[in-house]
Design a protein around this nucleic acid. Sequence first.
DNA 1: CCATGCTATGTTAGCGCTCACAAGCTGTCG
DNA 2: CGACAGCTTGTGAGCGCTAACATAGCATGG
Lengths: 337, 337
Amino acid sequence: MNDTGTPRPPVMADVAKLAGVSHQTVSRVLNNNPNVSASTRQRVEEAIATLAYRRNTAARSLVTRRSQTIGVLAAEMASYGPSNTLLAVQHAAREAGYFVSIAGLRDVTRETINEAVDHFLEQAVDGIVVLLPHPGALDTLRELVVGVPMVVVGAAVGDAFGSARVDQRLGAELAVRHLMEQGHTRIGHLSGPRDWIDADERTEGWRGALKSAGLSAELLLPGDWGSESGYRAGLQLAERRTATAIFVANDQMALGLLRALAESGIRVPDDLSVVGFDDQPESAYFLPPLTTVRQNFQELGMRCIQLLLRQLGGGERDSVVVSPELVVRQSTAPPAE
Amino acid sequence: MNDTGTPRPPVMADVAKLAGVSHQTVSRVLNNNPNVSASTRQRVEEAIATLAYRRNTAARSLVTRRSQTIGVLAAEMASYGPSNTLLAVQHAAREAGYFVSIAGLRDVTRETINEAVDHFLEQAVDGIVVLLPHPGALDTLRELVVGVPMVVVGAAVGDAFGSARVDQRLGAELAVRHLMEQGHTRIGHLSGPRDWIDADERTEGWRGALKSAGLSAELLLPGDWGSESGYRAGLQLAERRTATAIFVANDQMALGLLRALAESGIRVPDDLSVVGFDDQPESAYFLPPLTTVRQNFQELGMRCIQLLLRQLGGGERDSVVVSPELVVRQSTAPPAE
DNA sequence: CCATGCTATGTTAGCGCTCACAAGCTGTCG
DNA sequence: CGACAGCTTGTGAGCGCTAACATAGCATGG
């Protein structure tokens, strides 16, 4: 009567029986409760191994009221920044023993956001990481009463949520200051699309650094993250020769720009210095190798999860800012006399 | 004594009480059991709305032994194909009422795969979708005894797992046949990296189509998906003038190739016809607009989930192949006399 | 008119785990 | 030597839900 055909997976009681202890002791071993003697612990662990026992997450969740799951709400999953952040967040969460549930948005509207958050609540996620690089999404989020810890990545939200971000403005300043230290005074900027938070902040950083040095921040070219727009900007720049250096909002555009310059016979860095942003793996192999700003996505992801866990542990809602880092290569040099 | 400070979320019994029925009737309403009278159903639904009741997933999972979760094992999450597939799979799963847990691999080794599968098993996922574009990963998977339905995306695995894929070979054949129909006989190929399954199959498709038409398949240039490699190939091609048409393994490389050709004074399509692969959103705006092969990721994702659900429902392990589609634009034309 | 079946609802028993508490066993100290 | 603390282990209840069965109500047909 006990012997059904299907060998049902072992449960805690099976382990307990095999180890000659109570199920509760098994539970204690699993939860690293210190009050278990070494010998008992070992016997239990052996029994667990023998039976290939796996704790039933549902049962555990039911009583602890924790799902051990973090929801990640993401848009633009294919872009360099977001996809790397996603990867890092996911990794950090997994490392911390959490499951990662994902809701990717094809387009970001009040409706789709609502739907995704609902999905997460149904799943009873313990926390939500928001990965929406466009402004405005946050307003929608603010309206929602979620009732679950949330960390917004990449945006300096007020005190409504936790937030983790790379200091884009600082990154831009590092780039521009590096150029200024080399003696450049006419420093242009090729920006990212205006409806991206990061693009905006990089532009602001560029502007700020120049202004506070008493330099003009006039030469602003609009880009869209794509190499093509970098190429076009490069051609313009080659023609006008108004700047001796340019800060490009990402490496991909810098690639296009470098090519345009090469074609136009403008030498980098001799005639024009170029700084990128992102430090993609390829950037060290551009011609010339690109001076750029590195964002540490691993750290961002880790911090983000840390923040969330702290909130989960009853801690304060908090914010962290990860500092980017300038990687100097050969695309920058003092301006020609 | 019942009134603790924290307003604990409503449970089924609360809904039942408010609606004046038993909790089981509430359950029936939630599960769309037909044996509930319309009036009762309505009262229950009202009560649910009033209390903002959400069913406890953990409790449900505990008894049904289903987690309503699908695990997606992914690598190369940042590339065009994989990221779009991921997005589509995720969307289809969510649509079908499943939660999507993700495990992204930074590098694909026996160890990392093992670890990720373990993670999923611990979470008791109902099924796993495998999104690993490199060959070899499948061998590792085959060794593992997972005990959970699995669908492999993008690879023609034997009968070990279900599989859903876009017919890359057919896509390549469509491209090459289109060129042949226009009268081209010297058709080159710029391939993707050899350690990608898709790249391989596109190359095979190109080779096969040429061979079966009695044409030579000699002009094979190695690429790496990046625009840069397309650019280099374009320069080579411009110099040698060995082909009147070229099939490029993705649009990104086609972009670089087009630029190289433009710089070299080679007109597309007059002097050289170009076909890409992917139909990225930008491709319609290349100069000239690119003839390319479109993969329907939405359908792929949907099929993939369908397959998995069928397996979950006790159905057969099955395979589906989604047909790609040639999108003819202005980068192809009959060869000059 | 009652046996039969069908529909709508209620009752009961767990799913596998953790939490709170009880209980046994040492050792220590007044 | 008994009271008590501290450690290890066991017992029982219950988390919120669904599945299986029980029951009541109502129509159908011999």
